[in-house]
Design a protein around this nucleic acid. Sequence first.
DNA 1: CTGAAAGCGCTAACAA
DNA 2: TTGTTAGCGCTTTCAG
Lengths: 332, 332
Amino acid sequence: MKRVTIYDVAREANVSLATVSRVINGSNVVKAPTRERVENAVEKLGYKPNAIAQGLALQKTTTIGLVVPEASFTYTGQIINGLIDVAKIYNYNIMLHTITEGITDLNSVVEDIIKSHVDGVVIFDDKLRANDMATLNRYNIPVVVIGNKIEAKDVCSVYVNIEKAIYELVMKYLEEGKDKIAILEDRKNPQQYQYILKGAKKAYESKGKEFKGQLNLPTGTRTSYGFLKDWLKTHRYDLMVGYRDSQAMAIINAARENDISVPEEMEVVCVLDTKYNTIMRPQVSSFSIPSYDLGAVSMRMMTKMLQKDENEDREDSIELSYLFTSRQSTKE
Amino acid sequence: MKRVTIYDVAREANVSLATVSRVINGSNVVKAPTRERVENAVEKLGYKPNAIAQGLALQKTTTIGLVVPEASFTYTGQIINGLIDVAKIYNYNIMLHTITEGITDLNSVVEDIIKSHVDGVVIFDDKLRANDMATLNRYNIPVVVIGNKIEAKDVCSVYVNIEKAIYELVMKYLEEGKDKIAILEDRKNPQQYQYILKGAKKAYESKGKEFKGQLNLPTGTRTSYGFLKDWLKTHRYDLMVGYRDSQAMAIINAARENDISVPEEMEVVCVLDTKYNTIMRPQVSSFSIPSYDLGAVSMRMMTKMLQKDENEDREDSIELSYLFTSRQSTKE
DNA sequence: CTGAAAGCGCTAACAA
DNA sequence: TTGTTAGCGCTTTCAG
């Protein structure tokens, strides 16, 4: 069964296909009676314009590519939701790509993206570096990067200043004289981990001290919990910081195992949390990174890039703000 | 800057575009030297075939639509991962759509899907009913449904038999004489809740009893936890069943609040769990629904539908198996 | 206000 | 083995 085309509608309505095209694109030069004839035909035949053909003719597909890491973290879902919701408003479709270790790398994804002629691409991948964008750039596809601040032509970024967040947090503890602070590595988010580290180091520096609390997981370690269970037998801290709430919970579970009470003897904070944080006991104090907004703002930014007048300038990075929420894993 | 087309390559290599087309599509009728000239030209110009134009010419886009619910549940992420991984193997791209209450409904998504001329669509939406598929059917787009068993032409489904799982579970308890069993409503997954209920009812029936343990949240209740905290003041059970691990934790937290110890005084089981279940204390005994596999198998099924010979028969639904894993929230 | 025709980039007969 | 040409479904000048 062949799909009904613009020709079928034209024949049915006794007009040329040009007129049908005008009607479905809302041109206002078409006379009312003609328009009605066309609309009836469209309705009668159940005609839906073929986006592929439109894409060819217009040289734009009104779809944008979205790249996310394999890991189905909860916040990745949030980002996708935010992005799709605003994409919907602007009538963009989303082509989803993932980077799965052992199955897909960024190069092969970029290849697919170029072929598919999306109008732009939003990338959320902590492992992304500036030079990975070279190919995309060569085919001048507009790019929005989530999470990393990346400087390049035709590339915008939307992120949260985690370095600053941690700096402020650590400063507060240092000023209270609590300087035994540890930061747990997150292998899945190496870049974010670096930001966190940098924030902590700056804080220590400004107090004339040196930060030594970075806890890199030894190679071979499978889970943070497995590592921490032993580590905490011989180490004590005032504060431990994890990136995700699940890591914070690993810390807390390991602490419990060693009879370290949280928050009384040790406080725990994480950066990103999920709805599971409302279920956990204790609930973890955290910076509430607005994942949904990261997605939504990125897409909004993308639409702006796509309709920019060449001459018009626009900001090429947006810093979203965070909010620290104190819960049961810290003292106040 | 115009993108390089097949014409450019043809000119550069001094052949016709037909030959270029043959080379990029791996036809083996092209002579080696010619092939090389073309390949060099492709390389030199950085030519990538335009999938849109191919789509128009071939009447197939090698992309499939994926519809998921708004809720960024962890298992939705799993499903997406599974689906994309096998899509990648078969060189399919994924167009992602979400059903967001207040933003998008199934109808508008279906509209987009039809226009985009995807080769098929995979739908994971607990609220989906058979008649929702009417439009998709009218434009005869192959459909795979995840989670629900739906009977319709050109529709396949991949699911887990939760009814049976619960039946077996409840039977086991009934045989041990534990018949105070409650099942917590999951508003986000009404269909799954029904399946669970059915399983429990059957078990009770087969014992000549009537099941009365269905716990529907009163309208106005915002969280299961809020409801259960009070409810458990006046109700005692041998076993409580929640759909997701987060609900099971709500049950456990509410039980704690009422000094009901788990699993000693009350046991708790959930159907779907996430990685957070490994972090929680107690860990919840659960059926491990293979979310990743649900996605992967669906996509595999889709590829089969798309290459089916009209005459060749195939099964139109696949039941995936589950595995009950006993953890700290049950006695053995 | 409407129609005719060229073109978007590619594929697939059909010829040569 | 390679080239020519007619579509695929739609948009958009340019005439009328």
